[in-house]
Design a protein around this nucleic acid. Structure first.
Length: 570
DNA sequence: CTGGGGAAGGGGCCC
DNA sequence: TGGGCCCCTTCCCCA
């Protein structure tokens, strides 16, 4: 007995899950693009992947061996068994595919490509120029090898693996020759241990030297400008979307996020399949330049690397704001991956401490939110950066490395993401019922004093409820209370908050930070207000008086609970 | 044992 | 970004 389509259906489901980011537990960084996938699938497809995903949730691939376009094809191939063609000329594409497949130990795919190339052209070796790499397979191989040697000589350890051993034995296939020259393994292993060896030392992006310090870590996340200058095309509509109207990528190529409209000159930008979350060239370059001009801030007007200064509380022992400059764990690839990996090497595995933010905004709430989010929620030991894509909803916010692809919301853990994904059965990300929203009850709404304010004094009205505010910032702050997903997670317990201040305050309780001390008794408090309240114990002041019985209280809240006693039926 | 008050912790939210 | 205030809740003490 056998279900004929079982495997196919299973793969289909998995691919759909990949499209949604559901249960994805690994991120593959290719040059400037992120791809999400399932470890099991990758491990099943390649021994190389298997070794990579064994210990890491983030995989950096050697950009000399694979570019985002090719990797997207490969990922699609892994999940579907089908090789989708690109705009690239066939030979170039297959050549690049062969290189990448060899590198990734996807032997079936490599064989397929070889066969295809042989069929297409007998002179493949002389003609083929690597896609996006601009070299022939042969020269690519050689140059890569030399590059690797220059960069990593003497640093092979840890995962340095069977490939190099086999290479030394001279029994490698073409595929395997590539692999041995990959820096991936080195970086991979180093990233878990002493990734500094991968960081300042070399960049697979080919930029010179020290990218590790290329970020302007002192820069705080700026407020997001309004109105994107949409470059064009595919996803401009999503720029106008509220959080729930984020573009939903097609499921057949689930490889992450679209960056259409930017980086058009990039080698992958002309792909018809808008799935990469691609750090655009501009962004990437700005980083590179920045790294080259260490300490200088990039001048990209449109996109920028922003610091997610997430030391939760400076007063409370938050790390120095510029600590990132001295971060020890340089990562091999570009700044994003470096930072990602660095964060992965940190205390809270899934942190995405850096990202590139594009200052392209629609000026709507979601944009602001992302901006705010970017400046918030962070590990207590790392600065966070978020890559913000033009025309795309907020993606990975700080620690929220796990991003729901359909809506673009980020989550600090895969569990939370998975829980969130299930909510997509709901039409709306807002809990919006008649007269009830966001867990608030009607009574509270009706008692909302704000409603009595005139429209003149409070012109900024919430689109969800009837509350209105004096300024847009407060309105934005308020509107977050309607969101299903709270943007500010606690890095310790994962609890989510609508406001950073609340999260920061919450973090104090984790760490026992009580900056406010009573001069009388030495008792310490997490909040000034508590100290003020407490001081009444010493002064004997009881400013809160029950109008019914005359009872006096030091705390208003105790008066309130006392009043309940009066009013309760019992 | 129970209920009330005192004191405090923590979250929500507006300013 | 932090302060301030509101709310809910808990813990402890005591009558």
């Amino acid at each position: 007995m056998e279900l004929p389509n079982h495997a196919k259906q299973l793969l289909l489901q998995l691919n759909q899950q990949r499209a949604k980011g559901f249960l994805c537990d690994v991120i593959i960084v290719v040059e400037n693009a992120l791809f999400r996938a399932h470890k099991n699938i990758l491990a099943a497809s390649s021994m190389y992947f298997k070794s990579l995903v064994l210990h890491d949730n983030l995989i950096n691939l050697d950009t000399d061996m694979v570019n985002p376009t090719v990797f997207r094809q490969i990922l699609d191939f892994i999940y579907t068994g089908k090789l989708l063609t690109t705009d690239q000329p066939g030979e170039q594409n297959f050549s690049a595919l062969l290189t990448a497949a060899s590198y990734l130990q996807l032997h079936d795919l490599a064989a397929l490509c070889r066969k295809k190339l042989k069929r297409n052209s007998k002179s493949f070796a002389g003609k083929a120029s690597g896609l996006g790499v601009g070299r022939s397979a042969r020269s690519q191989r050689l140059s890569t090898a030399s590059v690797i040697q220059a960069r990593y000589s003497g640093s092979n350890e840890g995962l340095k693996g069977s490939h190099s051993k086999e290479l030394s034995k001279g029994k490698l296939s073409d595929d395997e020759v590539f692999i041995s020259s990959s820096n991936q393994e080195n970086c991979h292993s180093l990233s878990r241990g002493a990734s500094k060896n991968c960081g300042g030392g070399g960049s697979a992006n080919g930029s010179t030297g020290d990218q590790e310090l290329g970020l302007d870590l002192s820069k705080k996340s700026p407020s997001l400008p309004v109105a994107a200058s949409h470059d064009d095309t595919q996803h401009s509509e999503s720029q106008h979307g509220s959080p729930q109207s984020a573009s939903v990528p097609a499921a057949n190529s689930a490889s992450s996020f679209d960056e259409s409209g930017v980086g058009a000159s990039h080698s992958i930008a002309d792909s018809s399949d808008p799935m990469e979350m691609d750090l655009s060239e501009e962004c990437h370059h700005s980083m590179t330049e920045s790294s080259q001009r260490k300490g200088l801030r990039h001048s990209s007007r449109k996109k920028e690397w922003i610091k997610k200064d997430n030391a939760f509380d400076r007063k409370d022992g938050g790390k120095d704001r510029d600590e990132g400059e001295g971060l020890p764990n340089g990562i091999l690839l570009g700044p994003l991956s470096k930072s990602v990996e660095r964060s992965l090497a940190g205390s809270y595995g899934a942190d995405l401490p850096y990202s590139c933010k594009e200052e392209v905004e629609n000026g709507k709430e979601n944009s602001d939110d992302s901006g705010q989010s970017e400046s918030e929620s962070g590990g207590h030991t790392s600065a966070n950066y978020v890559y913000r894509q033009e025309g795309f909803e907020p993606v990975a916010y700080g620690d929220n490395l796990y991003v729901c692809i359909p809506c673009g919301k980020g989550f600090p853990s895969s569990e939370q993401l998975n829980a969130h994904v299930e909510t997509h059965t709901e039409e709306d990300l807002y809990i919006k019922e008649e007269g009830t929203y966001g867990g608030k009850d009607e009574a509270e709404d009706l008692s909302n004093p704000n409603q009595s304010y005139s429209a003149e004094s409070r012109p900024f009205k919430c689109s969800v409820c009837e509350k209105s505010y004096k300024d847009p910032a407060t309105l934005r702050q308020h509107e977050k209370t309607h969101w299903l997903t709270r943007p500010f997670p606690c890095n310790i317990c994962g609890k989510m908050f609508t406001q950073r201040g609340t999260m920061t305050r919450h973090m104090r309780s984790h760490l026992g930070l009580k900056p406010f001390a009573c001069e009388e008794c030495g008792m310490r408090f997490t909040r000034q207000y508590r100290l003020t309240e407490h001081m009444r114990v010493h002064s004997g002041e009881k400013p809160y008086e029950c109008q019914l019985c005359g009872g006096k209280f030091t705390q208003q809240r105790n008066l309130i609970s006392h009043l309940r006693m009066h009013t309760s039926p019992t």
